[in-house]
Design a protein around this nucleic acid. Structure first.
Lengths: 191, 191
DNA sequence: TGTACATCAGTGAACGCGCGTTCACTGATGTAC
DNA sequence: TGTACATCAGTGAACGCGCGTTCACTGATGTAC
């Protein structure tokens, strides 16, 4: 063969990685196959040697993006428990770098309009993320965990849309407070 | 003139109304000017007699959508306080009818990538919604109100993306619990 | 060792299509005389 | 009262463009003989 063993796999990974980042930053619809391939140093024709369709790449890029977030959550939880996850998720850095951030925050609304296989891949990974949060809660409360993820994801989106820096920061801060409140036992019993 | 007085205004309102609904249901990008005009019973060429560009329509449709949600929130608050808002927002009906639902839940992520004027119109209306929620909270706590909106908006999106009906319902239910917990004084002091 | 051939990742022209936008035009009406 | 004209909401062909996808091809390599 012309290329070293594993070459095609490496190319494929490059495409998925570029897609995962650009989808999160610009949205799936705004990112074209040709531009993606160019970013990976290739021409657009070769795309279909790797994926049956753009939609298949979307599915894979979503999974890839979630895997990265999942790993980061695990590291944060080990280092500083749920609070570390919450503070990192709702940080200006995360707000300002969607391409390296949570796929759920960037693409949930858009993915909800995609075909079922894509949605399935998406919700499977979301569930895993919720499970990871639940592990950090008293009683491993999955319901409370899903509310915390929803809160963080919604606040991050609002903070990204907000044009005023102060208000954006306030959105993040108030979500940190609320997430920690939701995580505490007292509040969990209240609800 | 060929048309009755107020005819053009009525047409314009029809376009904005159609746009507001279809943007929420399908996303801004997937909705074309031609299809929108056809829905309003017109041909696409006439669009630019009403709006300088599609982006201007987006801005107006976003405002229009928020106005409707704002009015509904006010009605619900009068009838049943914050709990009524929360339960309606996180209902299967709202989940299943995005075209008649909250613009923030449908378009926040997408609008964050739009030009500043559109984002400004968007966040202005979001702020108003937060203010309305704050009115229902002890101490008119705006920070807590914004967290509650973020939670509801995030949960609704996740529920819309989820393919499994039971899990979707669970996402809504757990968010209701959490939102009410956040609204209660005890929890507010906790955070 | 040298030659002919098969492999296959990647190339790039071409496809039909829908997009946002422009513009010369239509035609029913109100207005001027 | 009748005629000529101005108005202007709406029409529809046309623009350049980027999209996802297809496909005949390239050319460096490994393999067979």
């Amino acid at each position: 063969m012309r290329y070293a063993k594993g070459h095609k796999d490496a190319t494929r990974r490059r495409i998925v990685e570029a897609a995962s980042q650009r989808f999160r930053k610009e949205g799936v619809e705004r990112v074209g196959v040709a531009g993606l391939m160019a970013e990976a140093g290739l021409t657009h024709g070769g795309f279909y040697a790797h994926f049956p369709s753009k939609e298949d790449l979307v599915r894979e890029a979503v999974s890839e993006g979630f895997a990265a977030t999942h790993a980061r959550f695990e590291r944060l939880a080990q280092a500083g428990g749920l609070e570390a996850i919450v503070r990192e998720y709702l940080s200006p850095r995360h707000r300002d770098q969607p391409e390296r951030g949570c796929t759920a925050a960037a693409l949930t609304a858009e993915v909800a309009r995609h075909p079922e296989p894509t949605r399935l891949a998406f919700t499977e990974r979301t569930d895993a993320l919720i499970g990871l949060i639940a592990e950090q809660l008293p009683g491993h409360d999955r319901r409370r965990a899903s509310a915390i993820l929803a809160l963080m994801l919604g606040a991050l989106q609002l903070a990204r849309a907000e044009t005023d820096p102060e208000r954006s920061q306030e959105l993040l801060d108030s979500a940190v407070d609320a997430a920690l409140a939701l995580a505490s036992e007292a509040c969990a019993k209240d609800g």
